[in-house]
């Protein structure tokens, strides 16, 4: 369980002014839930993810994972970034093996596990390629495998498919769901795509634009496992998408007429 309580984040801007990025966020995420944080760009949704990751300390408030206060990054929370952030000096295999090796797993064991994960994300045969030799979609598959390799209980996904073309994006969404169905990790998924959030999530947290506040939390009551072709025709899915898009629009109006 992830408990975020009363979290605010203030940034100092260059002009000695302070900018309130997140305002009083409280949110509880159950184990095994797939939760999306949805909001316009600049609403601080990525910052919230970085706070849970322990990469950024909040100005106010506390975050706990399984009852333990977060003081820094840890292998129980694995990030996947939009920018992939693969180690360019390591091959695909080297990238995926990095986590297990850091966790003290023997080289042979880490390699065996990593090869399995690489196969699972559909990149068998690419083990010795370097990230620069892969397409964006393939890079993100490697990044996902690299994170899964150290068995985090929570996946923190920061607009992971935001830099990909529509086709690749759809395929990766499907593959992510298939992988998630196997072990049902807790996923915190930041996105600005309403369809993506509804398609993937159990819960969608809609945020307002700066300062980021939680506007609404919507339970997505759609059957799993989800099949994209069925879902797109499902009126319930369509209603969720339309309703949430309306909320996002409202958020933008607020911004225009403060």
């Amino acid at each position: 369980m992830i408990e975020i309580s009363g979290v605010s984040q203030v940034f100092q801007t260059s002009g000695r002014q302070s900018h309130l990025a997140l305002s009083n966020i409280s949110l509880t995420i159950q184990d095994g839930a797939f939760v999306s944080i949805l909001g316009p760009s600049g609403c601080g949704k990525s910052t919230l993810l970085y706070i849970v990751g322990g990469f950024v300390a909040p100005s106010q408030g506390t975050t706990r994972v399984k009852g333990k206060a977060i003081t820094g990054p840890g292998p129980d929370r694995g990030p996947v970034f939009q920018e992939f952030a693969l180690f360019p000096w390591k091959s695909v295999l080297g990238n995926v093996m990095y986590g297990p090796r850091q966790q003290g797993v023997s080289s042979a064991e880490a390699e065996a596990q990593s090869r399995q994960l690489i196969e699972m994300v559909g990149l068998k045969g690419f083990e010795h390629f370097y990230p620069k030799e892969l397409s964006g979609g393939m890079k993100q598959r490697v990044a996902l495998a690299r994170t899964l390799a150290y068995h985090p209980a929570v996946l923190l996904m920061d607009e992971p498919f935001g830099a990909l073309d529509a086709h690749t994006r759809t395929r990766l969404q499907n593959d992510l769901l298939n992988i998630w169905e196997r072990d049902r990790k807790t996923v915190l998924f930041v996105t600005h795509s309403v369809e993506e959030a509804v398609f993937l999530s159990d819960k969608v947290v809609v945020m307002t634009r700066s300062p980021g506040r939680i506007k609404r939390i919507i339970d997505i009551d759609l059957p799993r496992p989800r099949r994209r072709a069925e879902l797109l025709l499902d009126p319930h899915y369509q209603k969720y998408v339309v309703d949430i898009e309306g909320m996002i629009d409202d958020t933008s109006e607020d911004e225009l007429h403060p």
Binding site: G74, P79, A85, F87, G99
Partner: peptide, 25 residues
């Protein structure tokens, strides 16, 4: 920054980040 974060999340202690991530990068 995100290369460093990725390594820290994987369990690399802060004092090893310099040689495991910063120097190679």
């Amino acid at each position: 920054q995100k290369l460093i974060w990725s390594a820290m999340a994987a369990g690399t202690p802060p004092r090893q980040i310099l040689f495991k991530v910063v120097l190679p990068a």
